[in-house]
Write a protein that binds this DNA or RNA. Structure first.
Lengths: 224, 224
DNA sequence: ACAGATGAAATCGTAGGACGATATTGACGG
DNA sequence: CCGTCAATATCGTCCTACGATTTCATCTGT
């Protein structure tokens, strides 16, 4: 008998817990800087301390939580410099993805239509939650057309979620829509197969973001 | 009383175990594809299963070990495509580091002298172990002058160690020396403050590596 | 009232045991 | 030789325990 490894369902407790925490960050249930007390979390998530600690260790590898000896795990809070550094690295990787995507075959590139469709929906009814799903759809599609397995591995998108959580109170809806528009321009350039335009569109999007970061107040960031 | 957090010594068991395994990969004690049996490792390293599992979870985040449910942890073995993808991402990040490094202040750039010194030693007596320390010194210095905290976080250097381990039997000494020479050229360009030359030197080094990968036999890689 | 000392409580780090779930292996029969 | 099946190995998860360290409230002397 051939083993059928239940394609989606064989996900372990550790991964489920990690996703619960990541999701909690996106929904605001966990806030950057917050102390994650093991005893409390094991109760809330109904899991053992072993599984929780494995999940926290996993998240610490992604830079989502910081673990200090005998002081436990905290949701990491980015400093302004950390955000600048993060964005700079992110930009390079997204540029690479866009270049590869725009240079791929016609059929592959059509995968980005999903991202465009999501962006269109965001235009009509643009809440924060919808923005996040647009962003998710955009990057999923981009990595798919880029056809580079390493890219989603190293791209610090989940770490960027920390950034999104920290700046949420200072984000205007116009800024969010401008950002979504940036995604749309990148997607169109990729679909059109225009490598140079795609990379330029990425540059424009990040230039916008760098500028936005500098307008934010100090209290949005961890001090050093 | 001010707490003095013992700067180097407060490293936990998890990190020590993870480093032991990483080091074991470099020394050939562990070989890509190898099954890591928990019971055996807890005995060899004299630690509890809890700590070991936390360490394995950490390493799986870095892509060093692959964990499959009920089949445990294996040292990951890269396929040829994974290597190509890895190198492509690595190149972008090293380019960024070189650009930033070459554009930094004069004093900062002098930090790269350590890397040059290490490379000089490798020329005289070039064993594999020394090559690895040259490589380490080079990247340490490069990240230092690049002054971007995110860069060492995301750069898949430890994953590239897997690559090094897999191709070791097929590497000639000349190829290793050519690679070291590539490091030296990058370092010189960075110290000289020539941004364009630094980035070009990175491109040359990776072009060399891409070509080398294609000359390797299939058995050096995981099949798909 | 307040800075610093002190001790109690909270929390973490590590070890180790238990047991069901699953994969792997090897024996068996066709 | 191939498929079936049971035995074994190994993993995933939960649990308990206890020393180590931090954190916090209390106390003390000025």
């Amino acid at each position: 008998m051939i083993a059928i490894p239940a394609l989606g369902g064989s996900v372990g407790t550790t991964e489920k817990v990690a996703e619960a925490i990541r999701s909690g960050i996106r929904t605001g249930q966990f806030v950057p800087g917050q102390h994650l007390v093991e005893a409390e979390l094991t109760l809330r998530l109904q899991i053992s301390r072993s599984s929780l600690r494995e999940a926290l260790r996993h998240l610490s590898g992604d830079g989502i939580v910081a673990i200090h000896r005998y002081r436990g795990a905290h949701i990491h809070r980015l400093s302004r410099k950390e955000v600048r550094d993060l964005l700079e690295v992110l930009e390079q990787l997204v540029r690479l993805a866009a270049r590869r995507g725009a240079g791929s075959t016609r059929e592959k590139r059509d995968l980005m239509d999903a991202a465009l469709e999501a962006a269109r929906r965001h235009d009509e009814d643009g809440g924060h939650h919808l923005y996040l799903s647009v962003r998710q759809a955009f990057y999923d599609a981009l990595f798919e057309v880029a056809d580079n397995q390493e890219l989603p591995r190293v791209t610090p998108l989940r770490r960027a979620d920390l950034f999104r959580a920290q700046i949420r109170p200072y984000q205007t809806r116009e800024q969010q829509e401008a950002h979504t528009q940036g995604y749309r321009l990148i997607a169109q350039a990729v679909i059109g197969g225009d490598v140079a335009a795609a990379e330029a569109a990425v540059g424009a999007l990040f230039a916008q973001t760098y500028a936005m970061v500098e307008t934010l107040p100090d209290i949005a960031f961890e001090m050093e």
